[in-house]
Design a protein around this nucleic acid. Structure first.
Lengths: 233, 233
DNA sequence: TGCAAAAAGTAATATTTATCAATTTATTAT
DNA sequence: ATAATAAATTGATAAATATTACTTTTTGCA
């Protein structure tokens, strides 16, 4: 049984993988002609809010958090981008500065595609343009869901939901044992609350047998209960 | 002095007006060839979350709220679309059901453009495609700002901010006297809190001289103080 | 115009969430 | 392996927000 049968994971996932997947080989070659690859260690910043974009980024491996920092320096994670996803492109398309920052959540390999190549390919490739419209529209829907989440759900419900979503993102070969390896600070910043509150909710879930922890790692053992708490009927 | 000098209004406004404004006359004609006009009275639903889109909507006059309804029937307003804006198009582009509902906030004239005409024009018009990508990217940034707003600001700060934004949307000829004519329930649903809380904050702002009320109408008299409270430096 | 219904406003209280202050446990570098 | 450092956890309390119950005002309509 797939998660899709019991939880609408697509409401919380950007699916930007499909942007490049559907691209004709010729267009893909043009797009990636001048790409440069770089390794980002955990915590290293890929781009920063307010900077002028000089290109877009493709995550070859690893995970990257997209976040905003408020006046007091507190950060808030908007989205966790996974291997295969494209980031930074909407700022290039809007012809605006980056509207959020991006940093590696774990050691990640990211390739940089210059703005000029991206825009040139966009002009020549009918498919890229159509695919971008589709993906952006979907991302828009995901953001709307996130807003509802914040305005209508409690910290406990939001934590349950994010654990279900993160479990999908941290899946590797062995789907039965997914280790969510994320600091409590990052998790709190994703849920949108203080670290202490997330820790308390995790303790409750552990006591009830919905998950186990190994150091910082979280292993969800009862997804269905978490889905029920997140209130997705 | 314009509001833009003291407040980043573009962070909270979709600017979807520009989609049709920049369109060549020929493309515009193709797009609107089969449009049909309809009057929606206050509260009437334009489209409903979960329905399959059969087209897109252009607001000729009036204001339309975009909202989601949760399991308990409570509604949450995601965005207030104004005269000149296009709505419902991202669901058509994503090839998905409507991900939110839309209803008139006041008597509004809305024209319906069939999906087929929209998609046909999109295929033939280089400009429409580019403009949609730009606008969608901007809308995405607005949504990201909204998420931050919810996760990092108090009800008081959010109310102040929404009043500043609404004041711009309710501007007509006389910019000095802008009447925000919105029910407390809708305002609460936009701020993301209970009606009682919004009423309390409004009372405080009235006592401090930042606004006056005439029945349900709100007249902001001191925008700068509201901007300061909303914490935009 | 005046009456009924709906909406707005107020107050008291309950609940949730944030903050502060520790202690315990894990991780990293030597 | 061990010490030093960072992160996670727990508990107590403060602050913010939600809920309940009610009164007053406004609005729409007979």
């Amino acid at each position: 049984m797939s998660i899709k049968d019991i939880f609408p994971i697509e409401k919380w996932d950007f699916k930007s993988q499909s942007i490049l997947q559907g691209l004709p080989a010729e267009d893909f070659a043009m797009l990636t002609a001048n790409q440069t690859e770089q390794v980002y260690l955990k915590g290293e910043v890929v781009f920063r809010e307010g900077a002028f974009p000089s290109g877009i980024f493709f995550i070859k491996s690893g995970k990257v958090k997209k976040y905003k920092v408020n006046e007091t320096g507190k950060e808030h994670i908007i989205y966790v981008a996974n291997t295969g996803e494209l980031i930074g492109y909407s700022s290039v398309l809007a012809d605006d500065r980056y509207t959020d920052s991006a940093a590696a959540l774990e050691k990640s390999i990211v390739s940089f595609i210059p703005k000029e190549d991206f825009l040139k390919t966009l002009q020549l490739s009918e498919g890229l343009s159509r695919q971008l419209l589709k993906t952006l529209s979907h991302e828009f829907a995901v953001m709307a869901n996130s807003i509802s989440l914040f305005s209508q759900k409690s910290v406990r419900e939001r934590t349950a939901l994010q654990l279900v979503v993160l479990r999908e993102k941290y899946k590797t070969g062995n789907a039965a044992l997914v280790e969510i390896n994320m600091s409590r600070d990052d998790l709190a910043s994703l849920v949108g609350t203080a670290r202490e509150n997330v820790v308390r909710v995790l303790s409750e879930f552990r006591d009830k047998g919905y998950l186990t922890t190994q150091g910082r790692k979280i292993i969800v053992t009862d997804v269905k209960s978490l889905i029920r708490i997140a209130n997705y009927h």
